[in-house]
Design a binder for these strands. Structure first.
Lengths: 198, 198, 198, 198
DNA sequence: AATGAATGAGGATTCATTCAT
DNA sequence: TATGAATGAATCCTCATTCAT
């Protein structure tokens, strides 16, 4: 594992940024090296291959960058939330709010996840985090009993879809907030016994 | 509209079947003519082009076939259901049950929908049907008030995801039935005011 | 050499007619069997291959048919003309007039000749006829001395081009007659010593 | 507009040269990328697509190159000619003489023009230049009155045909010179009232 | 006499990757 | 560190022709 020079780091960043925007625009399937190179203002695709081991490597870098960005946006929300229900709510609402700040990142990530082309721990770990959260909440008597795995899949995918739809044509912050609350309500109702309590 | 001979019809069916299986296996993006031809035991891709006007045409035929199959499977369930809630439940449960019968068809369709590559009225019309169902149920006082559009997206996508996951490695009928009920419960709770009533 | 049945003859005629129209419309290069079959109302290209030994054969049949049509149109003009100059004039004028009667045939033939795809004696013989005509006229002292071969090429090709242009968007008979006279004047001046005499 | 490297420029030139030769040999319609690649000693057609945006682009480059070559050959002739008739004569004679220097270029260009596959201003502008020349000459009283458009078509096409024939099997310079004078005589006689004057 | 089916070569183009400089 | 050049497989599609029925 050799260290990266400043130049290399910034070149990689430049390419990753371009790649994310291209994926957001034309979709993962059509995000070719040449399209990305053009978007980044590079004259050849060789440059990308030079800095990344392959398409998978570039993709992983994109995912990492997106997670960094989204993570730093959502973290404060999550930390400010107390209790299982509040945290679920915070996750949903901040994820929807994220669309207003980083629509390209959101669209790109969802498209990558859809195509099952992500191997990052953050992405593949999300289900586990949700499942654990639900399980803990059930033990605490906050969430009603349900099949944790199935519900996790349904809710995370549903959230992704709503977010993707919103990201395609981002509405204003107020509308996004309303949408977040709407979805949070839906999810809290779905997972708790009776309205909201804790 | 020229009539189709028996041979042509059966060749088309053979190709469509192969295409559906290939899409289910490797995904829409990688479902090339040559892969499909190989899978169908054909010696060349020209053969596919001979029977279908283009990739879009083949895709449309696949979607039509899948809808035929899934429709005839789900219809009895829907017709047997009385009331808005029961119908929602029937839709969800029969859609999950479908996995046991036609896993490839289910996986293929979902992947096609994901990639936004479907123009069939059946596929693109599903959201509208859901929205209308929810709206009517709200007026009837069965469903609680909520953003019909957003909820439709969340729930249909969540359902798709669960179904896709199940289709990837189809469990037995009993487990599928349980999964269906589980998801139906989730959705009914999410959309009604208080447990189930109508 | 076996005799042709009535059915075969009429089928061939049907295909030839369609082929001529297609060549006139889309050009020789793009006149594929399938386009011709479609235009002829046939369901498959096999039918064409059945009746014609190959593309060359079909082409030859087209040329023959076109020559038959154009020949029977132009012949009266030529027969009515007396003297070398008058005959040249008659050829040019009737060839231009032909556009009004059989634009598709004219356009098709010219396109075929352009592509050098004709081997028929009529087509490849036209230069020889012209050359002979000029030579005889020179001996009779009607045409001035010139390189018969070169002039033949220049004048026939020039005539073809004018005809082709006119055929692309056929004007009325009066305009065609004027155009014919114009061109005949040009050619007579070019080939005689001094205005027109014999 | 990005600058071209030396290698790129020379590769493009190599491909263009090969393409011109192939078009001259087998005709525009059959000048496929693979034929051109083979002729140029390249191992794959991908190489051509790498250097040219598409077939149109390659074609445009060929036309440009041909025009450059023919232009620099004919220009001195035209500049040395004084008066409308002399210029017409110079154009015809130098165009025929060109065959001795660049037979492939001449044949290729004519085939391209025939197929109407050229969009370059030089090519599509030729008729207009001729028409203008004739009109001016008519006003100057040098050319007799005639339908400028029709005559332009006839004469340019006739010239092309003669040139193409000569290019197919280029004769020596003396014979070419004679052929040029022959055709120039023909055209001058055709367009002036009485022999040559200005 | 006819036809629908099948074939396989060939069309242009895009792609990710390698390599010498 | 960077880059332009090259590669060759893979993409979908069209073509003329053959063949069994």
């Amino acid at each position: 594992m050799r260290a990266r020079t400043f130049t290399e780091t910034s070149r990689r960043a430049q390419i990753v940024t371009a790649a994310i925007e291209v994926i957001a625009e034309v979709g993962y399937a059509k995000a070719s090296f040449s399209r990305i190179a053009t978007h980044a203002g590079l004259s050849s695709t060789g440059m990308i291959s030079y800095h990344f081991a392959g398409k998978d490597d570039l993709l992983a870098a994109c995912v990492a960058e997106i997670e960094r960005v989204t993570g730093s946006f959502m973290e404060p929300y999550l930390e400010g939330a107390d209790g299982h229900v509040a945290q679920l709510r915070a996750y949903v609402e901040s994820n929807v709010a994220l669309v207003g700040e980083h629509p390209a990142a959101v669209r790109a990530l969802i498209d990558i996840v859809r195509n099952g082309a992500a191997t990052s721990p953050g992405v593949s770990g999300r289900p586990a985090v949700f499942e654990e959260h639900f399980r803990a909440g059930q033990e605490a008597g906050v969430f009603r009993p349900f099949d944790v795995r199935a519900v996790t899949i349904a809710l995370t995918s549903g959230l992704d879809a709503v977010v993707a739809t919103a990201a395609a044509d981002p509405p204003g912050p107020a509308e996004l907030a309303r949408l977040g609350r709407e979805l949070a309500d839906l999810y809290v109702r779905a997972t708790t016994s009776e309205g909201e309590s804790a």
